Amino acid sequence: MMPVSITPSDGLSLSMIASLALFALVSSITPGPNNLMLASSGLNFGVRRTMPHIFGISLGVSAMLILVGLGLSTVFQTWPVLYTVLKYVGGAYLLYLAWCIGTAGPVGPGESRGKPFTFLQAAAFQWINPKAWIMSIGIIATYTPQNGFYVNLMVAAVVCTLVNLPSITLWAAFGSALSRVLRASAAVRAFNVSMALLLVASLYPLAQDLLVSLK
């Protein structure tokens, strides 16, 4: 039997995994729709009640990465109008979420006004989250070798989850920590409005695409 030689191109090398982890870290920990909503949720509901939201994001992004890698992207190549519709529906939904965050007041002990995202809501949200799409496509195109693609895709999803989960949890913890400082109702409202405005600002690339398409 001839010996089988394994080359770096047969799978993810340690250096490529390190690069993938760095990409996932930068993508996960920088401001975006998920993190802004987690900060607001941490402030208003605390980290414990925000945990389903956190796990929904992390596992939702990984599931999206796997499904896109398995060929869902070809559906959008065949019917690009579906991606366009999804993109603008997602933008409209983000505006709605920004409104909900911006108009939310502080939640006192015993109050039940408003609820954090559930696991399924957070996971489903990733399909209309532009940053999640960029992250998934970037990982598939750059950090997933074609030789042994399916195994590499699963490894990439695991690495993404291990990096993403603690990164986004920091945002919920940040919001929760601020709740001990921002005790005044006006301060909590100011924070929520700031998060809402940043969420709207994250839609700037989408607005640019819309303006270009209208010309």
Rank of each mutant, 00 (worst) to 15 (best):
L20V: 01
L214I: 09
L86C: 10
I137Y: 09
T7D: 14
I128K: 03
V151Y: 09
A186W: 12
A157Y: 02
R180Y: 09
V155N: 08
G114M: 03
T7L: 15
L22W: 12
L82I: 05
S13D: 07
S179R: 11
V81G: 14
S28G: 07
V75S: 00
I66M: 05
V61W: 02
M195G: 10
T118K: 03
P109N: 10
L214P: 03
L214Y: 06
G105Y: 06
L206T: 12
I17R: 01
I139T: 14
V26L: 11
V4P: 14
L170P: 08
G138A: 03
H53M: 02
P116V: 01
A156S: 11
R113H: 09
H53P: 02
R180K: 08
S167G: 05
A156M: 04
G60Q: 11
V158D: 01
Q126T: 01
E111S: 15
S179M: 04
G102Q: 02
V159Y: 01
G60W: 13
P145R: 08
F23V: 10
G110C: 10
I140P: 07
Q146Y: 09
S213K: 12
A39Y: 00
F23N: 00
F23K: 08
R48L: 14
R189F: 02
I29W: 03
N35R: 03
V68P: 00
L170Q: 03
V181M: 11
H53R: 00
L211P: 04
L36M: 12
L14V: 14
G175W: 10
M51I: 14
A157G: 06
T7M: 12
L162Y: 06
P145I: 03
G91T: 09
V151S: 10
M64I: 12
Y88I: 04
I128Q: 02
P145W: 13
M135N: 03
V188E: 09
R48M: 06
F174E: 02
A177W: 15
T103R: 13
I29P: 04
V193D: 07
